[in-house]
Design a protein around this nucleic acid. Structure first.
Lengths: 141, 141
DNA sequence: CTTGACCTTCCAGTAACTGGAAGGTGTACA
DNA sequence: TGTACACCTTCCAGTTACTGGAAGGTCAAG
C-alpha cells in the first residue's frame, strides 16, 4: 500500500504520517523502486492505533509510550491503566477550566442587551478594576 | 511604571507583554532615557483587559477585536455580544469533544483490571479493527 | 565603584501539525 | 510512443501563543 491508501484507511493525513515518521513515532517503512513508501497491513494497524490514541487526546509522547506497551508482550496492564487514568485527569482539568470560562461568558452575555447602543457589560467587566476575581483561574484548586 | 511592575499588576509575564507588543496587539509604550519601556496607568488598564479576555479563552485575534471595540465609543454592544456568543459556542464544542474522550477512557479503564497481567482492553480496543466507531469524532453533529 | 536587580534585543524551541513549491513516478489512454 | 494526470518525494516556512536563554545595558544602594 502507498501512503495515500493507508492514509484513507487509517484516517491520518499523509502529511501527518510522514511527520510522525520524521519525529520517530513511526518506524521507517519499506520503499518501492521509485522511492515510494510501501506499507504492510501491520503498519496499517499501527497507524490506526496511533490515530485512535490521538483522538482520545493522548499527546504524541503518550502515544509513543502506549505503542511501546502495545508491542511489549510482557507489559502489565496496570501501566497502561495508569496512563489512561492520568489522561482522564488532564481531560477533567481542561473541562473544568472551560466550564469556568463558559460560566463567566454566559453571565456576561446575559447582562449585555446586544443592541445598537454602545454600553456593554462585557467590555465594562473586562476593563473594570473591581471585577478582578471573576476572571481568576480557579482550575488550580 | 517599568515592565516588571505592570507585569505584576496585570498578571501578564513581562515576556508576554513584549510579545504582544511585537505582534502589534499592544501599542508601543514610551521609553525612558535608558531605553526602558515606561507604562501609564492607562496602559495598565489595557494590559488587564487583555489578560482577562485571554483568560476567558479568546484568541489573540479576538482580543484585538475586543480591544478595538472597547476603544470605539460608537460600537454597538451587539457586536461585542456576538463575539462572546461565538466564544461560548467554541467552548461548548471543546467541552463536548473532551467529554466524549472522557467517556471512552472511563469505559476502557473500568474494563482494564490493571494488575501484573499483560492483557488489557485499553490496548486491545485501540488496536482492534472492530472497535472503529467508538473512537469516532462525534463533535461534528 | 561594584553588586544585584531589572531591563534590553535576538535567536531558538515548544506541540502538532499544515501548506506550498519544485520535481519525480506510475499508469491509462489516444 | 507520447502525454496527461494522479500520486508520490523532499524541503522550507507558517501556524498559535508563548517561553527560555544568552549577551549585554541601566539604575539605585552602599
Amino acid at each position: 500500500m502507498n501512503i495515500g491508501e493507508v492514509s484513507k484507511k487509517s484516517g491520518l493525513p499523509a502529511k501527518t504520517i510522514r511527520y510522525y515518521e520524521s519525529i520517530g513515532l513511526l518506524p521507517k517503512p519499506h520503499r518501492s523502486e521509485g522511492g515510494y513508501r510501501v506499507y504492510t497491513s501491520n503498519d496499517l494497524m499501527t497507524l490506526r492505533f496511533v490515530q485512535r490514541a490521538r483522538r482520545l487526546g493522548f499527546s504524541v509522547g503518550d502515544v509513543e509510550n502506549l505503542l511501546a506497551l502495545w508491542r511489549d508482550q510482557h507489559r502489565s496492564s496496570s501501566e497502561v491503566k495508569k496512563l489512561a487514568i492520568q489522561q482522564i485527569g488532564s481531560i477533567d482539568q481542561r473541562i473544568r477550566a472551560l466550564e469556568n470560562m463558559r460560566g463567566v461568558l454566559i453571565d456576561l452575555t446575559e447582562r449585555c442587551h446586544g443592541d445598537e447602543r454602545p454600553d456593554c457589560p462585557i467590555l465594562d467587566d473586562l476593563a473594570d478594576d473591581e471585577t478582578e476575581d471573576r476572571f481568576a483561574d480557579e482550575t488550580k484548586t
